[in-house]
Deep mutational scan, measured.
Amino acid sequence: MPVRRGHVAPQNTFLDTIIRKFEGQSRKFIIANARVENCAVIYCNDGFCELCGYSRAEVMQRPCTCDFLHGPRTQRRAAAQIAQALLGAEERKVEIAFYRKDGSCFLCLVDVVPVKNEDGAVIMFILNFEVVMEKDMVGSPAHDTNHRGPPTSWLAPGRAKTFRLKLPALLALTARESSVRSGGAGGAGAPGAVVVDVDLTPAAPSSESLALDEVTAMDNHVAGLGPAEERRALVGPGSPPRSAPGQLPSPRAHSLNPDASGSSCSLARTRSRESCASVRRASSADDIEAMRAGVLPPPPRHASTGAMHPLRSGLLNSTSDSDLVRYRTISKIPQITLNFVDLKGDPFLASPTSDREIIAPKIKERTHNVTEKVTQVLSLGADVLPEYKLQAPRIHRWTILHYSPFKAVWDWLILLLVIYTAVFTPYSAAFLLKETEEGPPATECGYACQPLAVVDLIVDIMFIVDILINFRTTYVNANEEVVSHPGRIAVHYFKGWFLIDMVAAIPFDLLI
């Protein structure tokens, strides 16, 4: 008679799926529990143990900040960024110097990925580790590398530091407007667009060049630039800015003055950032001319202004700041037409079709709590990747769950009947059967004279019903998954307890 339990259901295979997918890609990662103190490590794979030199037993239950890997060259700011990422709910990448158990130093890129439950609360953290440099290539500990984003994938490793954006290309926007319009339909740009040429040739750093990471940081200074100062900065030398009595002219307006920039070969870094931020506020060169004239017309309804409409929906549905990093990277690809469009465009503009998908598509409701890094690593669709929660398995109709209350009560009843059979069957065979043979035949009273025979008949009927119930009862397979398919249940029961239950259900007393 089957006594099969499996009270692990309803099970959740999400954690096993993450481990299996990460292991298949030869990654070095740990999984931490966000619900406990210090976000203790609950799993670390073999790749991480080989990377740091510690065994799994030495890593388990330690804080996922990996303070046991810190050393003299470990930056405090990087460690603080990892700790801050564990307090938030967004994906974050941090470069930090770690030390192995043998004392060797290596520069590592740590990717902190939160995993949320159905309520939107962070319950786990996945920390992925990628070695960037070994100890002989690690720089000085005073050099802070965590304020910069990861290198873009479309640049060669040897040319990542030679990417320079020439400031004269930004200063000569109005001069290039006529050349853009003359391109017409034969050019790649839309009317009114501004073409910015980027020099990728390796050259020595000069005062006129600005690194790509500095251009990325310009967006942080746009908020500090007032509207009046932006307007004066875009007017140009024809209309000098008016300053109040006793007030000095704005240095932001002076930063885009061609006369002032041409007199000296070098520009201050602050002026460069502010000038680029001011130019980015204009949607095209037409807006710059309109600002000089004193009238700013409404933005025209053409394809170039609607190019950012799908980007707005993608940004609203993005799951991490990696989408913004990807957008900034692609927006700086050289030799393309940049349409400086305000994100607050007309909502009635139709979304044009684009061959290049900048932001990841909208994630469906079932995966809105899973970050983009987890979705990318697992390579699963929205119909396959579940949320991290207890999910009731989908069972067929008329199927009994093996952990249901009805099955528990039924098993206790069958257990009592088995005990009765084990006690009274030998007793009936030894004593009652002998008395029946010696006594007179009682054929007239039937079952009324033999109450134990009636009980034995009921017990046999219950055993037959138990066999039928076992054909529709779920079970737990070797992978700790609840199986509810009727065919698989029948095959599993035939290979197991079916023969024993059938022999126990045969009414031998009635056959004798």
Rank of each mutant, 00 (worst) to 15 (best):
H7S: 14
N339V: 01
G158Y: 15
A121G: 13
N257D: 14
G88M: 12
N12H: 15
S272T: 09
P352I: 06
T65V: 13
N257Q: 04
S250E: 05
R5G: 11
T305V: 07
T162Y: 06
G226R: 07
S26I: 01
S243V: 05
V8E: 12
L212S: 05
R56V: 01
M137W: 14
S266F: 07
L378S: 03
A83Q: 03
N317S: 07
K364Q: 09
N369V: 07
S263F: 08
L170Q: 12
E357W: 06
T174R: 14
N369Y: 05
S331K: 14
D342A: 04
C265Q: 08
Q75I: 01
A228Q: 03
K135Y: 05
V8Q: 15
I19C: 04
E130R: 06
R366A: 09
Q84D: 13
H147S: 15
E230H: 03
S250D: 09
T270L: 05
G88K: 14
G189S: 05
T17Y: 12
P241G: 12
E289Q: 06
I288N: 14
D144N: 15
P386I: 01
P300E: 13
A204Q: 06
A285N: 15
G294C: 09
C64H: 01
N128Y: 06
D16W: 13
K364W: 05
R252P: 05
A277N: 13
S320N: 03
S261A: 08
R76H: 15
Y54C: 01
D16M: 07
M60N: 03
H7F: 08
F348W: 06
K116I: 13
I18Y: 07
A282V: 05
R56D: 01
A89Y: 14
S55A: 06
T13L: 10
G103D: 06
L380F: 07
R76W: 05
V41C: 03
L165C: 11
H143M: 13
T367C: 03
T152H: 06
K373L: 07
N146D: 03
D321I: 08
A185G: 14
D342L: 01
P297G: 11
R92P: 01
T270H: 06
Q25Y: 08
V132N: 14
N339W: 01
T353K: 13
K101W: 01
D342P: 05
T174Q: 14
I42A: 01
A83E: 09
F98H: 01
A156K: 13
P2A: 05
P310D: 15
V222P: 10
S264A: 14
L127W: 01
C276V: 09
G53P: 01
S209N: 14
I82T: 01
P202R: 09
A285W: 11
G226K: 05
S263D: 07
S322Q: 14
F340G: 14
K28Q: 07
P347Y: 08
F14D: 12
D346Q: 11
H309E: 11
I336F: 14
S255M: 05
K344E: 12
D136S: 14
S354N: 15
G236R: 09
P157W: 12
S284D: 09
N257M: 15
I19Y: 01
R164C: 06
L171A: 14
L311N: 15
N45M: 01
P237Q: 05
L51V: 01
V374M: 07
L86D: 01
R56K: 06
T270Y: 05
S255R: 14
F29S: 01
I82F: 14
E58C: 01
V279I: 14
K135S: 14
T353D: 13
N45A: 06
L165D: 10
P258C: 10
P150H: 09
I330A: 11
P258R: 11
L69F: 01
V370T: 06
N257P: 07
R271M: 06
G187K: 04
S272N: 07
D346G: 11
A175I: 01
P241E: 08
E95H: 06
H221P: 10
I330F: 12
P202S: 05
L165M: 06
T329R: 12
F68S: 01
D197E: 01
L170P: 15
G192Y: 03
K373F: 14
A142R: 07
C276A: 03
R92F: 01
T305L: 13
R326D: 13
A282H: 14
A223N: 13
L385H: 09
R77S: 12
K101T: 01
G158L: 14
K332R: 07
F348I: 13
E274W: 15
P10M: 15
N369C: 12
S243G: 13
N220V: 06
L380Q: 04
K364N: 09
N128E: 13
R301Q: 07
V8D: 15
R176M: 06
T367G: 15
F48S: 01
V222L: 11
S207L: 06
V122G: 06
K166L: 06
P2E: 04
S354D: 10
Q335H: 13
F98K: 01
N220G: 08
R271Y: 05
S283H: 08
P347G: 13
Y327M: 08
L69P: 01
R181Y: 06
